[in-house]
Design a protein around this nucleic acid. Sequence first.
DNA 1: ATAGGGTTAG
Length: 840
Amino acid sequence: MAALPFPLPTNPIYSLYTPRKPHYSPTHFASFSQIASNVQISYKSYLNHISSLCKQGHLLEALDLVTDLELEDITIGPDVYGELLQGCVYERALSLGQQIHGRILKNGESIAKNEYIETKLVIFYSKCDESEIANRLFGKLQVQNEFSWAAIMGLKSRMGFNQEALMGFREMHEYGLLLDNFVIPIAFKASGALRWIGFGKSVHAYVVKMGLGGCIYVATSLLDMYGKCGLCEEAKKVFDKILEKNIVAWNSMIVNFTQNGLNAEAVETFYEMRVEGVAPTQVTLSSFLSASANLSVIDEGKQGHALAVLSGLELTNILGSSLINFYSKVGLVEDAELVFSEMLEKDTVTWNLLVSGYVHNGLVDRALDLCHVMQSENLRFDSVTLASIMAAAADSRNLKLGKEGHSFCVRNNLESDVAVASSIIDMYAKCEKLECARRVFDATAKRDLIMWNTLLAAYAEQGHSGETLKLFYQMQLEGLPPNVISWNSVILGLLNKGKVDQAKDTFMEMQSLGICPNLITWTTLICGLAQNGLGDEAFLTFQSMEEAGIKPNSLSISSLLSACSTMASLPHGRAIHCYITRHELSVSTPVLCSLVNMYAKCGSINQAKRVFDMILKKELPVYNAMISGYALHGQAVEALSLFRRLKEECIKPDEITFTSILSACGHAGLVREGLELFIDMVSNHKIVAQAEHYGCLVSILSRSHNLDEALRIILGMPFEPDAFIFGSLLAACREHPDFELKERLFERLLKLEPDNSGNYVALSNAYAATGMWDEASKVRGLMKERSLSKIPGHSLIQIGNKTHVFFAGDKSHSRTKEIYMMLALLRVEMQFTRCISVIS
DNA sequence: ATAGGGTTAG
């Protein structure tokens, strides 16, 4: 047990289980002789009547009776005024209480100086949160008893002056008063609010010594204190020892589990409570809904909603907000809207919840519309609203909105809020304004872990691994230990820069420092390995992740599928497809796209089509994946027919669709169709042509031996030709016998991207395509010399109905040569226009 | 004695 912060009392043990009533009689201080004996009966009946009126909240009627007594010149004892004041305490009726206070003063010292009345007045003003009056009266008290002390300490704690409350607790003890089961809950509440676990534990020790633990008020406040300090096991121990658990005890336990992130335990406790047959309250259900939202368990949360309705609970702000929070966290936006519309009174929290719910579900426009409604209803934005707006701006890369929001924050002094500042930093980072993000970060006085992590993520995302590491060390120098998210960003930064080995070292380092990698760490690693061409390692990492007992989500699955594509390994891809089916993982649109993409890139266009056909509600990304698959396989006719179907179904194609369909036309040499599509994109769909679209156009023209036209297009483009354009040209003249042209293009490419191994592979493939194996080999040697990471490219060659995958990796040309020779032996006609290189 | 909201990592 921890040391006591105060000496133990020497007095006999205080009686514990007494109900709340003073241990002295209120009338004890009043001289009953003052009351005429002939009116005593009627006085007593008056008193009883007044008392019952007060208890029912009929304060005005009670006061009328007192007036009657006064008119009959009957001396009124302190008991009557006490009852009245107690009634005012229940009703929090400040002005009425003040009137009674006035009457008491008018009736002279005998009543005003009565200890019972004086104490009641302190209690009354304290409960009405009238700090100044309460404190003044308390200071002037003749006797400061346990009751007035408890009232004042409760007031201080409610006002947020918890430290003062605890000081009063100690002072009270020094004053020689007993710490009873009325003050101790206040002490627990204050130490819980301050997270002063040491103080709390020593009060706990006192409770044990004094045998106060059986009092339900003491026990629930003790359990709450442990919960607030994050010690859920201790809280659970206290909870289990409560023999007769009331609703507050159950609620406290559920609330504390939820607030400490132990959502499953919260749900379990809720069910235990149901088994015990205890009726839930709003507190129970709002916490249960929070836990369900955090666990994304839809059925449980819906049951909670149903139970709230069945229990006849009123849809107050708190219950309603919890419901909105639950529905929007699990993606049921319409249900959230329904609850919102059913709520009679709404406050800023309610509105904010729906706004953030929209943002959370990607409905940025609706979020902003709701903000406008908020404005028109004259509701003030607070920092929470702004944080959601900034998240919306970041999501939609809407720099204009972000800047407006930022200036609103500056005008309204909201940017000093850490969460708002973090969201502003994130917004600038997502809009690729890293310097602005940095400026906001530097200008912020108070920085928390999330803010550091936001900037870390921003640098990592852009592959500025150096800056990421610098910041990572700086935060540690400033005494802030990084968490998993910080480490994840460092790993991501390194992977995005291609520094795979360093990323792997960092992964080991974090574990040796006792930081446990989470799903995102694993996924980042799997994804990064796949993107850096290390598909095998990505798979091994996936196995380690499974061994670590971490279940993949749709992103890890997509990453693995992209690893399969990189390796062009159909068996691996099939294995993942089986894994999805076996584990009944949710097949979201991104996963379906990755599946289509994987099968296409692994050469099985038919299987890709089968997956595509199985999708009932086809969205644009799925079409895009399938079209790009056809493009990859040189099946331009199928790609074009799918493009028409897309239009028939009134789905608007985007720039990605056009990139794929244009590249399909390029591979098939469909010049007229390609040019028409380009014009359709620019004039009908108002899509600004990007470099890759020009690249496709160039590629289409080059492939049809229209190199002059291609060069004309390049000159007329609204921007400088980039590596992609030169790459397209180089790829386009794969079969072109002009070696010099290839080399010149390659030179230009190297100037733009000296470290891109893809260009070397492209040149090597171009040599290989025209049978110049030795030159191809030289380029490979050059790559090795410059120790460029080997990204194994691979080629898909369509022969008859089958597509074959040829690797252009290390042993590329020898293997390609082998296959070419095999094909020649089989007398299969080579279709070079259908020979596509897929180089990431 | 118990009660609802915002910001970061793929």
